[in-house]
Design a protein around this nucleic acid. Structure first.
Lengths: 163, 163
DNA sequence: CCGTAATGGTTGTTGCTTCAACTATTGCCG
DNA sequence: CGGCAATAGTTGAAGCAACAACCATTACGG
């Protein structure tokens, strides 16, 4: 099987995307860690809970929304619980299941962290683009996600944010 | 300071980009780890060396090209050296400096790993896009990188891959 | 219903990244 | 040319993620 190497325009796009893959998560983590002692993933977990009814979700549902394995989520939730940002309790309906609920302290943390996080996303990403480019980016990332996550586990809950 | 929250189109783009940030590196790592026992970062280090004159670079230069800290690179290079994929030797011109050179075994590893890696990049990213979208992606990622990495450390060597 | 498979979740280990501390050169400035 | 700062790199400890093994509960097929 002979390889189709990348054309010059493809390489130009890929090299830059790969660089962003390396730099952007680091930038997000640095800001949130500095301002809220939270990783980007921690923040995402808390944010998903804060938008859920009764600020509560089952571990499996939370794992889907954050595209994490249950093992990873379990460790993260354990740490967040130790810090009092959320609490776990057995699910009444299914005794195998565990629910995670955001505490008031967790809610405060998200509310305080959000403005700085959004500001960084603007500063490093969205404000660098024209409105037209923002639309193009949504279309392009949507196409890539179909390949990357065919079941759209992560973006499922965002279907309301249609393009 | 009151926050400018994201508009609906901005949110649509950001949610998808954030999902890609989570999923794409994992996909790249999984493939390379399975097929070549290499992380994406390992691969990148070897690839940068393979393109350098005499397959040799100073640690600092290698760190710039891979956007890594020297500490991270030092650990990674140590492991790759233990596996015989590269070798370190003191730089003759500056006795503070260390050079890293790709061994023949390292060269073979890159050559064997490249096709599978490129195939995945095509399958999950580039082949999902029209040629026009590939161009848009290059433009957009270029604009973001200017904010993220003003000195263009990582993409500097790729200036020849102009848009 | 009984046994087995599937689901839901946790925990321990290993590997990689980050951070801080440290050593060894080299460059520079008075 | 002596001293101090900057450069180049390494190392060890601490934290987070991935993987595999594990336990408990529920669903299902005969």
């Amino acid at each position: 099987m002979d390889t189709r190497w990348l054309s010059q325009p493809e390489l130009a796009a890929w090299v830059r995307l790969a660089a962003i893959l390396e730099l952007l998560p680091a930038a997000l983590d640095t800001q949130l860690r500095r301002d809220a002692q939270l990783t980007h993933f921690d923040y995402y977990v808390l944010a998903m809970l804060s938008e859920a009814p009764d600020r509560t979700l089952r571990m499996t549902a939370l794992a889907e929304r954050t595209t994490a394995t249950l093992a990873r989520l379990s460790h993260v939730v354990q740490r967040l619980e130790a810090r009092g940002l959320l609490e776990r309790f057995p699910c009444p309906e299914d005794r195998r299941a565990t629910n995670a609920r955001l505490t008031d302290a967790g809610r405060d943390t998200v509310v305080e962290a959000a403005p700085g996080h959004v500001a960084l996303v603007r500063e490093r990403v969205l404000d660098a683009l024209t409105p037209e480019q923002v639309g193009q980016l949504a279309t392009i990332t949507d196409a890539i996600l179909r390949r990357l996550d065919p079941d759209a586990r992560r973006t499922a809950i965002y279907e309301r944010y249609d393009r």
